[in-house]
Structures are given as structure tokens and as C-alpha cells.
Nucleic acid binder design. Structure first.
Lengths: 133, 133
DNA sequence: ATAAAAATTAGAATTATTCTAAATCTATTC
DNA sequence: GAATAGATTTAGAATAATTCTAATTTTTAT
């Protein structure tokens, strides 16, 4: 594993939020001034193939990266906020109902976060320009 | 609801696969020769906001659209194939473990599809150019 | 029939990501 | 320790998906 790959893995594992490639790039630059965004993508792709990190896709937002500890996600339907939650392992319940062996599963739970309930939270930055008024 | 929106909803609801915006555009053109891709995006966005369709994100592949009947998804980790599966509703089990009210959930189950087990399936077309040799 | 509002179109623009080719770094051999 | 091969990184061009803009067309209400 190269130095950059190690740094990037460290950044992901020590973060308590879900970072995008761009955010990881900014963080990597603190350790390695000359790092390029392409290096981040190269290494993310390598780490992902090796199964050392997870990738999370939420519709309307850029992919972000996560550690591989088993956990699920909460997604706020209003502001897009993504957070971790640990629920019981559902593999057994799911496997009972499928005849093919399952490798793993991704569970995203949609809700409205506390901030959005109150109505005073700005939207998470999604793709493209601004979304709604 | 406009004519195009109706057509698009019909296309999504009557399809037994998961269509991308591009595929919906091609399908829409059969009904409406002059349709533009932007119209497809406009209407998908409208239908999504109205809760009339679902949007599915799989890392590495363009978003695709789905009907709103409750069901889960199988994702082949090798070729990216996305298919439907109906499992028991897990809302109860999940809600028991969370104090905030949940709206819904998205469950994606990772497996290796029959074709990939045998080894003779071409990869689903993802983003960018070709992936691996 | 006319005016106002909404939807559509075509194409430019944007964002996230991948690719390319040259440059740099690393490890290995003599 | 220099020469070399291989891997990694860099910088920027290229691409794909999606969004935006502004002009045009369609629909609706008057």
C-alpha cells in the first residue's frame, strides 16, 4: 500500500462524517502538498476494490466514502444529511428469504432530521447548482 | 400532470427493468418524436418530488428510476445487474430500534448473479469508459 | 382571440469522474 | 551508488450525467 493510499484510508477511518472525493482531496493536501485529485480517485478506487472502504451513493449527491465497520445509514429526505446508525444485523432475516447466498447489504433509512423538523437547516450541497428556493 | 409526464410515468411503471434517464428518453421519443432529454429530466424531477417514482443510485452507475411499489433490490457486485426482489416489510423491525419516525427505507442486497457465477456475462455499462480488462 | 402562465426545446454549462501521457518515485540489480 | 524497470503520481484533457438558460411552443384562463 502506497503512502497516499495509507493517508486516504486514515482520513476515511478517522472521520466521523462521510467524505466526498473532493473533501478527501482537501484533507490529503494537508499531509501531501502536491497531491492531485486524480491520485485521490486512483487510490479510492484501489481501496474500494480491496474492500478496505465502502462507497455510498445517495441520489442527487456525489458519492462518498465510509469505513467498513458494519452499520446502516440515515438519510434526511429534506437536507440530504447522511448519518450512521447501528442496527441489528439483518443478514439472517434476509438470507432466510433468498435462495442465493448474499454477500452483504446496504440499508438506508429515510427520515427527516431534527434540524429540518424545526425548519432551520441549509441543504447539503448536492450535484449541479442550487436545488430549490 | 402534462402529457410528457404521463408518458414517462407510464414508461417507468410498465417496465420490468430499471431505466436510466437516457433510456427513458429513447422510449419517450417513440410517442413524442420531438421530445428533448431536458424534458425527461424535468419530468423525472417533477415525478420524483411528487413521490410518483423512485430513484435508485448504485455506485458506479447512472441513477435509474423505478415504480413505487414496495420492494427491495439485488445488486450483482460483479456485473452491476440490478433486479427486484420482494422481502417482508422490515419497517417494524427497524422502527423498534430508532426513536425518530422513519419515512421509508432502501435495501440493496449484494450478491453475485447466476451469470457471473458461471463467468460468462458482460458488465453492465457504468459511468465513464471501460472499467477493467 | 388574447394574454398570461407553464412546459418544452436546444444547446451551453457544470460537476463528478475517468483517462492519457509525461514526470516522479521506488525498489532492484549490478 | 548508478542504471533500470515498474509502479505511482501529476496535470490537464476528455467524458458522461445532469442542470441551467433563454428562446419557443403549448396550454389555460379571460
Amino acid at each position: 500500500m502506497t503512502k497516499n493510499a495509507k493517508y486516504i484510508l486514515e482520513i476515511i477511518n478517522s472521520s466521523n462524517v462521510h467524505l466526498t472525493a473532493e473533501q478527501i482531496y482537501l484533507s490529503l493536501k494537508e499531509k501531501n502538498k502536491t497531491a492531485a485529485l486524480a491520485t485521490v480517485y486512483n487510490n479510492l478506487s484501489f481501496l474500494y476494490k480491496e474492500g478496505l472502504i465502502k462507497k455510498i451513493s445517495v441520489e442527487g449527491y456525489p458519492d462518498c466514502y465510509d469505513n467498513i465497520k458494519r452499520h446502516d445509514h440515515l438519510v434526511c429526505k429534506k437536507c440530504g444529511k447522511l448519518s450512521d446508525i447501528v442496527l441489528e444485523d439483518l443478514t439472517g432475516i434476509i438470507q432466510q428469504q433468498i435462495n442465493i447466498p448474499i454477500l452483504s447489504y446496504d440499508l438506508k433509512i429515510n427520515y427527516i432530521c431534527a434540524g429540518c423538523q424545526k425548519g432551520t437547516v441549509e441543504q447539503r450541497q448536492g450535484k449541479g447548482r442550487d436545488k430549490e428556493p
